[in-house]
């Protein structure tokens, strides 16, 4: 994705595996912790990472039936992400610098506004599939053949906007910024280094992948493995890679074309998402009753 973005900006860009290399390097680097940081500061990366990983594990990626999908439905996934965010924000406030608090305050505002929009989108799906289990929703989508429903389009729009806001991409937040005052997510990580930073960054990347998988597999579920056999999983793998590449390219285009907006424009952005979610729900209730 960075590669596509660089190309669009007339640069050659780093290789595709560069984020992984960055992580590997961070893992072997020494940790520096600020004076006066409490134990919570050092425990938080593990909580954030664990919760995000667990949330990602519950989202169907290659196959519909997952052993982990039964103990967490979509509301639990949202809850786990909220848990990760809670600890991230607490850790940011721990050292007592101004940037951490600022980042935490802004991140939580955006998250608070994004959450209802996300749940509205999800509820539209759940009301159609009569289930909040992700596996059931995806299975329902596969069986339902290609029915172009207006409610789905609205839900897709809402979920895309929420995903952009939640994962801290342009135009809500800029993951590559180096100016502290414009940071949201990065401001919270300012005091982290070494393996702690690596875990936090990795968690953020997992979260991005999670949202991408969520959007792709719910709205474009074709190719996903319905059985746990090797060939089906292979097809699923190819399909999801292709879909992810497509979505990543689209995101890169969006990030190149748009500029980051002011923080106080973000609520309007998220209200749009909420509006999409509501419209989706209403169109479901009004147009698709009786299915």
């Amino acid at each position: 994705m960075r590669k596509v973005k660089a190309r669009l900006q007339n640069r050659r860009g780093a290789p595709v595996v560069q984020p992984l290399r960055d992580l590997r390097k961070l893992f072997v680097k020494e940790v520096r912790v600020a004076h006066g940081a409490s134990p919570l500061f050092r425990a938080a990366p593990y909580v954030v990472f664990g919760a995000t990983l667990l949330a990602a594990a519950s989202v169907p990626l290659l196959g519909v039936t997952l052993p982990t999908a039964t103990f967490a439905d979509i509301v639990v996934v949202a809850g786990l992400l909220a848990l990760a965010r809670f600890f991230l924000a607490l850790a940011a406030m721990d050292v007592g610098t101004a940037f951490g608090g600022m980042g935490a305050s802004r991140e939580l505002l955006i998250a608070a506004l994004a959450e209802p929009a996300m749940l509205m989108a999800v509820f539209t799906l759940a009301m159609t599939a009569h289930s909040t289990n992700l596996a059931s929703i995806v299975a329902y989508q596969l069986d339902d053949a290609l029915a172009l429903r207006p409610s789905y389009l609205f839900a897709l729009g809402a979920l895309c906007l929420v995903a952009i806001a939640e994962t801290g991409r342009i135009p809500v937040d800029n993951p590559a910024t180096h100016l502290e005052l414009t940071m949201i997510h990065e401001a919270m990580l300012l005091e982290y280094s070494g393996r702690h930073l690596a875990l936090m960054e990795w968690a953020a990347q997992i979260k991005l992948a999670l949202y991408a998988a969520l959007i792709l597999n719910i709205f474009l579920p074709w190719g996903i493995a319905e059985t746990l056999g090797a060939p089906a999983l292979g097809i699923g793998l190819v399909a999801i890679l292709l879909k992810l590449a497509g979505l990543g390219g689209a995101l890169a285009v969006v990030e190149t074309v748009l500029a980051k907006m002011r923080l106080f424009r973000a609520p309007a952005f998220l209200n749009l998402a909420l509006l999409f979610g509501l419209l989706g729900l209403l169109s479901h209730v009004m147009l698709e009753v009786g299915r």
């Binding site: 072997v28 020494e30 940790v31 520096r32 912790v33 600020a34 004076h35 006066g36 050092r42 050292v95 007592g96 610098t97 940037f99 300012l190 005091e191 070494g194 393996r195």
Partner: peptide, 11 residues
């Protein structure tokens, strides 16, 4: 890697 160094926060 166990070692953790303490430093001042970014100012």
């Amino acid at each position: 890697l166990r070692r953790v160094r303490r430093g001042d926060p970014w100012d």
